[in-house]
Design a protein around this nucleic acid. Structure first.
Lengths: 332, 332
DNA sequence: CTGAAAGCGCTTACAG
DNA sequence: CTGAAAGCGCTTACAG
C-alpha cells in the first residue's frame, strides 16, 4: 500500500536542518545536552514525518537489546503467575520479554538458551522445572546475567527460590495443631527437589513431635486423576490417616474429589491441604487450605537482580529465598 | 572473566581460509551453493572457534526479526492456554515470541504495539480482551502482518474468533433438554462482545422454544466473589430458575460455591453450566459442565496466518471462526 | 552545544 | 562455486 521508504534519522536531520547526531541524541533521549530550541525543532520534525526509530539499528549500534529471555517449562497457573511478575517488573524497567516454553525437555531448554545467546539478550531468566538439572553451561560461558528461579542454588548462577521445607513444615504443623496424628503426604516425583524438600519438611515436623505421630508417603504422578486414584486406593486399603498433605493443589483437588465421591466428610473425617494456592482453590467447596507460593514475587525479584547486575557475573553469588504463606480454609 | 572479543564471521573466515561471504552462506544455512569441502572447512572452524552468529547483526542486515509480538490482557488460564498455542506454532516455524501483558488498558496495549513496530517485528498477535475496541491504527499504518484473536472481525485486520453465540446456544439447548424451563444467565459486562454474543445465543435458544421458557439475566462483575453474591441474592429473592448458565467458569465456580453453602443440591435443585472449561473444572465436585473454548487452536491459527502472509495486508481479509465444544459433567 | 565520520557484524547483489 | 565491497540505520567518541 505504502511503498515509500521508511523515515530514518537522515530524513529527520534534513527536515530539521541539523545533523543526524543531534537527531539521535534527542530521539534516544540520551542525557546528552542539546539546546532547547534545537531539541524542539527535531521533535517537531519527528512528529511531522512520523519517524519511528528503528530499534534494531539502535540495538545493533549499542549492543543492548533491552530484552530479557525467559524460559518456562509450561504455562500452568504457577508459571503464569511467575511470568506476570517477570513481565511487570521488566516493563517497569523498560525491558521486553522474549518467551520460550520448553516443557520438561532438557534439550529444548538448552536450545532456548542458545537462541537467547545468539540474540545477545541483556539477561536470562530460567524458570526451572522442579526436575531440571543444572544448566549445561556455567555463567562464564553464558556471559549474560542469568537468574534461575525455583531451583536450588546452582553453581555460579543467581537463584531465587521459595523455602519449600519451611512451607511444608508449616502446613504439617497446622494439621498437627488441628489434632491429626496420622497423616498422608501425597506427592509425585520425589526426585524433583521441590517435592523432596516438601517431603523433608513434612518428615521433620513429624519426627520432632515424637512417637505418637505417623506419616505415610504416597508417591504418584502429578495429575489430579492420579491423586484421585491414589486416595481412593488408600481409603479402600483402610488407611487410618485423618489428613492429606498434597504436594500441589492439583493433587489436593484430586484428593478432594475422591473423598467427595466416597462420601467422606471433609474436613470431618479427612482434612486436605495443598501447595500453590491456585486461583480456584478459594472457591471450591470445601475451600482448600493451601500454601501460597509467591511466584510473582519470585519472578519480579529475578528481573530486579538482572537490572542491578553490572557485569555478566556480578550477581553470580546472589541467592534469594522468599517465604511462603499458609492460607487456612475450610478443608482443614 | 573472559575479556577477549567475541568471535565474528571475519575470524571464522580467516581461520577457514575463505571469505566472510562464504562463511555467512554456510552459517546462515541459506540455500546458496557452497562446495562441500569448503562448507566442511567452515563448519569445522565454527566448531573450533565456538562461533555464535550475532542474530542482531543478521536481523539488521536482513530486516527479518524472526519474532512475533504478542499482546495479551492478562495471563489467566484462558490466555495462558492461548499463549501455549501461539508459542508452539511459532517455535515450529522458527519464530520467537515477544510477550507483552497489557491489562485492560487501551493505552498500554497501544504502547505495546508501538514497541513491536519500533522493533520491526515480523508479525503481531493481539489477544483481545473482550471489551477492547478496535486498534487505533489500520493495517496500512501498522505495516506488519497483524492478527487479532478473540475479537469480532475488525476493519482490515485478520481475526480468529470462536463462535460464542453458537457456544451459548448449545449450552442453553443442553439445559432445556435436561428439562429446565426457567434459566438464569449470569454474566458480566454486557458491553463486552464475547458476553453479548453469549447472551444472544442464550436468548435466541429460549425464544425459539416459545412461551413456556423463561430466561433471567443477571449482570455482575467478573469475579467468583461477585457471582457468589449474586446467586445468593437470587436464591434469597426466591428465584424460580432451576439452572444457571454462567458466562465464565470463574463465575460458575462462584455460583457453585454459593449453592453449596446454601445447601442447595446440584444439579438436583439447580444446575450450573459455565464457559472456558478451566483445567480445574473437571475435578471440582460436582464436576462442572462447561463449554470448551479452543484457545490454543486459536493462538496457533493466528501464527499460521502470519506465517502464510506475504505482504503486510495479504491476510487482511482472512477471518477464522473456530468451534467450541460442550463438555457435559455432573453439574447439569 | 553541534557535526563529520567511523563503526556495530552480518548479508547480498554483483562480478568473476 | 567464490570473493570484494556496499549497505542495513543507528550511536558515539572525537574535534571543534
Amino acid at each position: 500500500m505504502d511503498g515509500n521508504k521508511r523515515i530514518g534519522v537522515r530524513d529527520v536531520a534534513r527536515h530539521a536542518g541539523v545533523s543526524v547526531a543531534t537527531v539521535s541524541r534527542v530521539v534516544a533521549d540520551s542525557g546528552y545536552p542539546v539546546a532547547k530550541a534545537t531539541r524542539e525543532r527535531v521533535l517537531s520534525s519527528v512528529q511531522q514525518l512520523g519517524f519511528v526509530p528503528n530499534l534494531i539499528a539502535r540495538t545493533f549500534a549499542t549492543s543492548r537489546t533491552k530484552t530479557i529471555g525467559v524460559a518456562v517449562p509450561v504455562l500452568n497457573a504457577y508459571y503464569a503467575r511467575m511470568l506476570m511478575g517477570i513481565e511487570g517488573e521488566a516493563t517497569r524497567n523498560g525491558l521486553s520479554i522474549l518467551l520460550s516454553i520448553v516443557g520438561d525437555d532438557h534439550d529444548r531448554r538448552e536450545s532456548a538458551i542458545d537462541q537467547f545467546l545468539a540474540r545477545r539478550l541483556d539477561g536470562i531468566v530460567v524458570c526451572s522445572g522442579a526436575g531440571d538439572s543444572a544448566l549445561d553451561r556455567g555463567p562464564a560461558r553464558i556471559g549474560i546475567p542469568t537468574v534461575i528461579v525455583g531451583q536450588q542454588p546452582d553453581a555460579g548462577f543467581a537463584t531465587v527460590t521459595v523455602d519449600n521445607r519451611q512451607a511444608s513444615y508449616m502446613a504439617t504443623a497446622h494439621l498437627l495443631e488441628r489434632g491429626h496424628r496420622e497423616l498422608i503426604f501425597l506427592t509425585s516425583r520425589s526426585d524433583w527437589f521441590d517435592f523432596r524438600d516438601r517431603l523433608a519438611g513434612f518428615a521433620a515436623c513429624l519426627a520432632e513431635r515424637g512417637a505418637g505421630y505417623r506419616g505415610q508417603v504416597i508417591e504418584g504422578a502429578f495429575s489430579e486423576r492420579d491423586a484421585y486414584d491414589r486416595i481412593r486406593q488408600a481409603v479402600a486399603a483402610g488407611t487410618r490417616a485423618t489428613a492429606v498433605l498434597a504436594a500441589t493443589d492439583r493433587q489436593a483437588l484430586g484428593a478432594l474429589a475422591a473423598l467427595a465421591d466416597l462420601g467422606i466428610p471433609i474436613p470431618g473425617k479427612m482434612a486436605v491441604v495443598g501447595f500453590d494456592n491456585l486461583p480456584t482453590s478459594e472457591f471450591i467447596r470445601p475451600a482448600l487450605t493451601s500454601v501460597d507460593m509467591p511466584a510473582d514475587d519470585m519472578g519480579a525479584t529475578a528481573i530486579a537482580m538482572i537490572v542491578k547486575a553490572k557485569g555478566p557475573d556480578a550477581i553470580a553469588l546472589a541467592d534469594m529465598t522468599l517465604e511462603p504463606r499458609l492460607i487456612v480454609r475450610s478443608s482443614s
